[in-house]
Computed example of a mutant assay.
Amino acid sequence: FIALQSDAPDTLHHGITKVQIVVNGVNANQATLIRNYLQAVVTSWAASLNSQAAPVLNVQTRTRFNEANDSHYYLVPGVIVTIMTMIGALLTSLVMAREYERGTLESLFVTPVGSGEILAAKAATNFLLGMVSLAISMIFAAFVFGIPIRGSLTLLLAVSALFLIVALGLGLVISTAAKNQFLACQFAIMGTFMPALMLSGFLYDILNMPPAVRAITYLIPARYYVTLLQTLFLAGGIPSVIIPCCITLGVFAVALMGIARLKAPKSLE
C-alpha cells in the first residue's frame, strides 16, 4: 500500500494539498509500475499548481504485515515447507524400496500384518519425525529470527500435520512404484522437492509466472501450504484463505493415501 502526500500549496485554497493513493501490492512488479506512474502524475500536477516554486512531494510507503520489509518474514515459512517436504516425501519414498532391495518383504508377508498396515507403520515414524522437525523450526523462527505468529498456534500445527500427511502420501506412492532406492530418490526430488522449491510461491511469485506455469502450480500441494504458513505467521487466521487451502490439501491427502493403498505390494511379484 503506497500513500503519496503532496505538500505543494493549493492555489485555490491556499493550504496544503494531500493526495492518498492506495496500490494493491500483491503483484510486486505491477504495483511498482503503478506507483511510479502515479507518482509522476502527482508530481506533474503539483508543479502545475505553482510554476514559480518547485513543489515539495513527500512519499510515505507502508507495507502491510511486514512494515520493516524483513526478508526473514517471507523466507522462513518457505524453508519450513521445504523441510516438511523433504521429511515427508523424500524419506518416505525410500522405505518400501529399501525393503525390496534388502529382500525383507518376504518375512513381512508371512506375518498376519497386511500391506496397508505395513505402509501405515512406515509412515507413522516419518510423521512423528516431521512434527518434531516442525516444532524445532518454529522455535527457531520465533526466538532466533523473530518471526511473529499472529494466527492460532493450534491451527498452524493442524495444517502442518495435514500437509505432512499429503507429503507422506506422495512418498508412499513413489515408494510402492519404484523398487530401487536410487530411482525412488530421483523421483522424489523431481516430483516433490523441486516443485515445492520452484512452483510453490516460495522463491518466485506465482502471479508473475506465465499462465501455463501458473496453472501447473494448482497441482503442487506445497503451494497451498506456503500460503497457509505465510497467512498464519504474518496475517493471522483469515477464513477465506485458510478454508480453501485446507480443503484442497485434504483432497490431496485422501487421493494420495488411496493410491498408495491400492498400489501397496501384496506379494513379491
Rank of each mutant, 00 (worst) to 15 (best):
I80K: 08
T82N: 13
I83H: 06
M86N: 04
G88T: 06
L94A: 02
V95N: 10
V95Y: 04
E99F: 11
R102G: 00
L108T: 06
V110W: 14
V110N: 07
P112V: 05
V113W: 09
G114K: 08
G114R: 07
G116K: 02
A121E: 00
A121I: 00
A123M: 07
T125R: 13
T125M: 12
L129E: 10
L129F: 13
L129R: 13
V132R: 00
S133G: 05
A135Q: 00
I136G: 05
A141G: 07
A142W: 10
F143M: 13
F145R: 11
P148C: 07
I149P: 07
L155W: 12
L156K: 03
V159W: 08
V159K: 04
A161N: 08
F163V: 02
L164E: 12
I165A: 15
V166M: 14
V166K: 12
G169K: 11
G171N: 09
G171H: 10
L172K: 06
V173A: 12
I174H: 03
N180S: 15
L183M: 14
L183H: 14
C185F: 15
Q186F: 15
F187V: 02
F187D: 02
I189H: 04
M190G: 04
F193W: 04
M194C: 01
M194K: 01
A196Y: 06
S200P: 10
S200W: 12
S200L: 08
S200G: 09
G201D: 03
F202S: 02
D205C: 00
D205I: 06
D205R: 10
M209G: 01
P211N: 02
